[in-house]
């Protein structure tokens, strides 16, 4: 996903038409989608779907459910593209926010239906998976490096929430620390991550 467009001036612009009338940059493509441009939606799909699917996979684990969520989110992007306001952040942040929330909401509704036991095993994997990912990518490397710069408690709080889909209360239980501590570690960890990544 073209998330680097989020923070660095200049890279937000469309890179211009590539082979068709559809703009190639995510921001410009999303703006065209808001006007009903189906070719631009294909561009948005190609750029955004991998991060959406990856996020859903981390949280839901189940491949079929994750694909469903990915398709739902992309359709939601199509449907509500006119509500995207560049003043409130990058297109990538808007789409991944939709994706993350939808995946978390799905976990929670299942949890409520079946009182899902807390999968403590997931505690260990979230960070390691980023660290040990086979597929190399620039984003992955930057995030891995910046996550490594967090305190352990900050890193675990952020990754358990983001990749594990756990609430702050669940994270507090998993880490054996006070709820208030988890809240501030999530905040401070994200701030440090934001600054390290040079976004926002």
């Amino acid at each position: 996903m073209d998330v680097r467009a989020g923070g660095q001036p200049g890279s937000r612009r469309s890179k211009g038409p590539v082979g068709s009338a559809a703009p190639a940059g995510l921001e410009a493509a999303l703006a065209a989608v808001a006007r009903g441009d189906e070719a631009a939606f294909a561009v948005v799909y190609d750029r955004a779907a991998p991060a959406v699917l990856g996020t859903a996979r981390r949280i839901l684990r189940d491949p079929a459910q994750s694909e469903e969520v990915m398709q739902e989110v992309l359709l939601e992007v199509w449907r509500t593209a006119s509500r995207f306001d560049p003043a409130t952040g990058s297109a990538a942040a808007w789409i991944t926010t939709l994706a993350h929330r939808r995946a978390v909401d799905r976990v929670r509704s299942e949890q409520r239906a079946a009182r899902r036991e807390i999968r403590a095993a997931a505690a260990a994997i979230a960070y390691d998976e980023v660290a040990d990912a086979v597929e190399a990518s620039l984003d992955r490397e930057r995030v891995r490096r910046c996550l490594a710069g967090l305190t352990e408690l900050q890193r675990e709080s952020v990754t358990l929430a983001y990749y594990g889909g756990y609430s702050y209360r669940e994270v507090a239980l998993l880490l054996g620390v006070a709820v208030g501590t988890v809240k501030t570690r999530m905040r401070d960890g994200l701030i440090r991550l934001r600054d390290c990544l040079g976004v926002g």
């Binding site: 996903m1 998330v3 989020g6 923070g7 991998p50 991060a51 959406v52 699917l53 990856g54 996020t55 996979r57 981390r58 952040g89 990058s90 990538a92 942040a93 991944t96 926010t97 994706a99 993350h100 998976e129 980023v130 990912a133 990518s137 984003d139 992955r140 930057r142 995030v143 891995r144 952020v158 983001y162 990749y163 994200l190 991550l193 934001r194 990544l197 976004v199 926002g200």
Partner: peptide
């Protein structure tokens, strides 16, 4: 949220 977007991109 921009930091969150990169967390998502990292697991694409």
């Amino acid at each position: 949220r921009e930091a969150g977007a990169l967390l998502a991109a990292a697991v694409a």
